[in-house]
Write a protein that binds this DNA or RNA. Structure first.
Length: 382
DNA sequence: AACCGCTTTCGTG
DNA sequence: TTACGCACGAAAGCGGTT
């Protein structure tokens, strides 16, 4: 009887680039890079052929161009990728509940499905084959006793990989991949550990929990304590908390005029308002993010006493926040606006605080938004 | 002591 | 030789209030 837990983590290989290669077969085998060559642009994804040149995600495209001048640089077609993604998720969902993590990745609890679908490894091979044949892209799958280990297993043999970590071998697996590949341990944490002489999972295992927590903080300490033992530190079973919606943009050139910044904030206020209406949420907090030409970055937020009802209020608060930290003439590279501390509903927490006008403006926002969704162009340039 | 608000930092894809 | 996006969540540290 196989009664132990079995999780699949799946990850599509160089997904956007693979889709482009499948759509245009002349790109197969070539270095395909998603990202327009130009200042302030970065690589979104690139094919494995491009990675041979040292190109990788988040790299400035100008640098990628230097490394790989023969690369095929594409702008990216997110609708297309989404439709591929939906087809993949559709196939996967024939085998169980899909916990989608992003457009190209997710995990499933496949415990106790052997009688139904066959042994995990064979099932994984079958799924990989189906995705390749029916969608046209390759997928890597990791199989393990927790989503945490399965996640790293799916990365182990990429691309077109399959890796199973047998129950009881989790800690050995962590030792084999090393600190740097532990999910949740990024550049900064890695450097901190190295600077303290903690170079391997083994070295961290030698420390008692309390000691670890006093060196790197209680939360991070217990995360590491579990991770180096191959125990899922609770990576994916987080309950959905208050979420947030935000938008930001980097200008082609630094902006120094308040009119331009205000115009952008106005359009962002509309966007956030409409997105929050679509998602049926209200927010308590408005936050502004600014990045100066020298990359210095700050955030500033406010939780207005009178709540947030409509796009006007978002905009007015945003401008106040801007003026509290920025003076005319300073070059702004990036500006962002977000709604935080959201809760679901259509009514404010303390309704009495809202004026009649605020309610009216909210109703107007709704009408404008519904007309726009039907294809009517109300505003210009958005 | 518990809670809330604000800001920064870190990490993910 | 440089080049550096966007959206989201979690947590720490601090100061203030109940």
């Amino acid at each position: 009887m196989n009664s132990h837990p079995v999780f699949f983590h799946f990850d599509l290989d160089a997904f956007f680039a693979s889709v482009e290669q499948h759509e245009d077969l002349s790109l197969v085998g070539k270095p395909v890079i998603i990202g327009k060559v130009g200042p302030r642009m970065v690589v979104s994804t690139c094919s494995y052929e491009a990675r041979k040149y040292g190109v990788h995600s988040a790299m400035p495209t100008l640098q990628a161009y230097k490394l790989c001048p023969n690369g095929i640089f594409l702008e990216g077609n997110y609708r297309l990728y989404s439709s591929y993604s939906r087809r993949v998720m559709g196939i996967l969902s024939e085998y169980g509940d899909v916990n989608q993590v992003s457009i190209d990745e997710g995990w499933m609890d496949m415990s106790g499905t052997t009688l139904l679908f066959g042994k995990p490894k064979e099932l994984a091979l079958k799924i990989k084959e189906r995705i390749k044949n029916e969608v046209g892209v390759t997928m890597s799958i990791g199989i393990a006793s927790s989503p945490f280990i399965a996640k790293m297993a799916s990365d182990y043999n990429k691309p077109d990989g399959l890796c199973m970590v047998s129950p009881g071998k989790e800690q050995m697996f962590i030792d084999a991949i090393g600190l740097k590949k532990i999910w949740g341990l990024g550049d900064s944490g890695y450097k901190t550990l190295i600077s303290k002489g903690l170079n391997t999972p083994h070295a961290i295992r030698d420390l008692p929990l309390e000691k670890l927590q006093s060196t790197v903080g209680s939360s991070y300490g217990s995360f590491l304590y579990n991770a180096v033992r191959g125990i899922d530190p609770g990576t994916y079973q987080k309950e959905a908390k208050s979420h947030s919606i935000s938008t930001e943009t980097t200008f082609l050139e630094d902006i120094t005029s308040s009119d331009t910044l205000k115009q952008v904030l106005l359009s962002m206020s509309w966007e956030l308002m409409y997105r929050s209406l679509d998602e049926g949420i209200m927010a308590k907090t408005i936050g502004l993010k600014l990045r100066w030409g020298d990359f210095r970055t700050i955030t500033v937020q406010t939780t207005p006493q009178d709540g947030i009802m409509n796009s006007n209020q978002i905009y007015e608060n945003a401008v106040k926040l801007l003026m509290s930290r920025w003076s005319e003439g300073q070059g702004i590279r990036l500006i962002g606006l977000g709604l935080y501390q959201t809760y679901s509903g259509d009514t404010p927490l303390q309704d009495s605080l809202f004026s009649e006008d605020d309610h009216k403006k909210r109703e107007m926002d709704k009408v404008v938004h519904s007309l726009e969704k039907k294809g009517l162009k109300i505003r210009k340039g958005v």
